[in-house]
Design a binder for these strands. Structure first.
Length: 565
RNA sequence: CGGAGCGUAGCGUAGCCCGGUAUCGCGCCAGUUUUGGGAACUGGAGGCCGCAGGUUCGAAUCCUGCCGUUCCGACCA
């Protein structure tokens, strides 16, 4: 490709609205332009990278027997109502105003509507169907460039099986394919346990790229034996010791104390872990009170795992009604609503000498003995793990890092096939719902995550399969006809040899300008043809990542490149 | 959705408090000189100062409303 014929609007200055590295560089390198919040135009250079990523995905999906589809983004609202997701998604789904259609944020419903009619016998199964297509999500707050957009490209795949063992197999195939895909894309990633939704027992894993720009927090260890999204991570944590002192319950006046920090200052002699922190959740008609140690936080995702995704934090006005006090003064004793269900964290199992809210504003109780003073507590792991805690097997300490979710694989089960009545007849002639899995990859996120991991002060550093161009050919002295002629000749040769070359054939632009552009857009090898070197039959090679330059004989170029790629 | 910031030429910005013909850099066009790390000089083009209303002799500047956008948080497969 000749740069004169290639639209590559590079920018020297940092765009004012971009904050994360990948966003800045994708704009500066002429890959994308923002149209409106969370919506980006892909320019030729950016598209080239996205297409390379898509092709890797396509190859690996085909390799596990995936069949490519292309479904519409527009779909009837009715279809989403049938699975309840029209309501679940709410505002996150774009709805068409002048027709009863929605813009699909994912495609379980549409694929299932096809399986329903066409996968009717166990002989039709298994199937793996996928597509690479635009998704629309009305994110309340798009951010970080293409990392969270309102329109983005997703590879979404769905497996259809007749048995649960078959689902396991389909799931494992995807797991393998994903490892290949992200490795080929040059990403360093972690596979972590993830939130599996309301259906207990379903497996779910996320493919995470460590990055400061990420929105997720994951838990990893030095030996990599344990990895989990922090939402569902578990660790070894010491139980609060039971003292059996049998001290009697005592009400204490705590005016204006609403947080655990304030309570800790007010009662400096009480161990922080014994200040039991209460939070109230509403799950349909049920009221749930959670109790964790004062130095812990409750994990709402874990609660969702136990009680379903409908569970939510109680509103302030509800607190007075059900608990009889405001947020800072709620506890397990004297809770107003009789039908409250108390869930204590495992650390607090049968603990005593605790301090917690008295369910009366500005009062706390001390010497709470959960065994004695609170009835029917159920103990579960509901806390969020913390940095440096031991893993359950105590072999390693955990680290918490931010990361970008680039892929997610998920055993769906029969949620959608049941809702939409996609059933097949098994060998005995019995009708059964198809067993499904769903598997997603964010195409632009791969690109952004790659850049987050591969850049320096000068710009992007591309390498490997997703590299848009392998070689940038630079004529350093365009005012010298023989230098230009020689560069042209080398360009033709490189093309014949099958390299993807970006030839900076712009006339009258200083060499320095071309070098800066080449560094910014990150081409791995720069071949520089300059007057001085050429006189001696030499050309210069620059390796983008290391910055290393070498002078070689013209004739050595072919061998050098064969070695480099 | 709550909080904060920003909106001036293609990009990055000054001016706004304290109202009086819109600043600078990059980029762009023409010419000359340059040509190995974002060249120099000269000349030029380019602006409903986000939109609407108000105050005023006069508004980029003050007031009101709206829109857009970014960040923090909440939410979110």
């Amino acid at each position: 490709m000749r740069l004169k014929n290639f639209f590559l609007p590079t920018i020297k200055e940092e765009p004012a609205d971009a904050v994360v590295i990948s966003h800045k560089l994708m704009i500066r390198a002429g890959m994308i332009r923002q149209l409106t919040a969370g919506v980006y135009s892909y320019l030729p250079f950016g598209l080239r990278v996205f297409k390379k990523i898509e092709n890797i995905i396509r190859e690996e999906m085909n390799a596990i027997g995936g069949q490519e589809f292309y479904l519409p983004a527009l779909s009837p609202a009715e279809l989403w109502h049938e699975t309840g997701r029209l309501e679940d998604y709410g505002d996150t789904m774009f709805r068409i105003k002048n027709r009863d259609l929605v813009l699909a944020p994912t495609h379980e419903e549409v694929f299932t509507s096809i399986s329903k009619v066409n996968l009717v016998s166990y002989k039709d199964l298994p199937q793996i169907w996928y597509q690479i297509q635009s998704k629309f999500r009305n994110e309340t707050r798009p951010r970080s460039g293409v990392l969270r957009g309102r329109q983005f490209t997703m590879k979404d795949a769905y497996s259809f099986d007749s048995t649960w063992e078959g689902l396991d197999e389909s799931y494992n195939k995807h797991s393998q394919a994903y490892k290949h895909i992200f490795t080929r894309c040059g990403l360093k990633f972690h596979i972590v346990k993830a939130f599996s939704g309301a259906m207990g027992g379903s497996d779910s894993e996320e493919f995470m790229v460590e990055s400061a720009a990420g929105e997720d927090h994951i838990v990893i260890t030095e030996n990599c034996e344990y990895a989990s999204n922090i939402e569902v991570a578990v660790s070894h944590s010491e139980k609060v010791e039971r003292k059996n002192s049998n001290l009697s319950l005592e009400e204490i006046h705590t005016p204006g104390i609403g947080t655990i920090d304030q309570l800790g200052e007010f009662l400096p002699d009480v161990d922080r872990t014994r200040l039991a922190k209460s939070r109230v959740f509403i799950n349909g008609e049920d009221v749930i009170l959670t109790l964790v140690c004062g130095d812990d936080e409750v994990s709402e995702t874990k609660l969702q795992n136990y009680f379903g995704q409908g569970i939510r934090s109680a509103h302030p006005e509800e607190l007075m009604e059900v608990a009889g006090a405001e947020a800072g003064s709620i506890g397990p004793v004297n809770f107003k609503s009789g039908k409250v269900k108390i869930i204590g964290d495992l650390r607090l199992e049968d603990a005593d000498e605790l301090v917690s809210g008295a369910c009366k504003n500005d009062y706390h109780f001390k010497n709470i003995d959960l065994k004695r003073d609170a009835k029917d507590i159920e103990y579960k792991d509901i806390r969020t793990v913390k940095e440096n805690e031991w893993t359950l097997d105590k072999k390693d300490k955990i680290k918490i890092v931010k990361s970008i979710e680039v892929g997610h694989i998920f055993k769906l089960g029969t949620k959608y096939s049941e809702a939409l009545n996609s059933v097949f007849l098994d060998a005995e002639g019995k009708s059964k719902p198809v067993i499904m899995g769903s598997y997603g990859i964010g195409v632009e996120r791969i690109c952004a995550a790659y850049i987050e991991q591969n850049y320096d002060d000068a710009g992007i550093i591309f390498e490997g399969e997703i590299t848009p161009f392998q070689i940038q050919l630079i004529c350093a002295n365009t005012n010298k006809e023989d230098v230009v002629a020689e560069t042209e000749k080398i360009y033709s040769e490189l093309i014949i040899q099958g390299y993807e070359v970006l030839y900076d054939d712009r006339i009258g632009i200083s060499a320095g300008f071309k070098f800066k552009d080449a560094d910014l857009i990150g081409t791995p090898i720069h071949v520089i043809i300059g007057e001085k070197n050429l006189k001696n039959g030499n050309i210069e090679i620059k390796h983008r990542r290391s910055g290393e330059r070498s002078i070689i004989k013209k004739e050595e170029l072919q061998g050098f490149l064969a070695n480099a790629f």
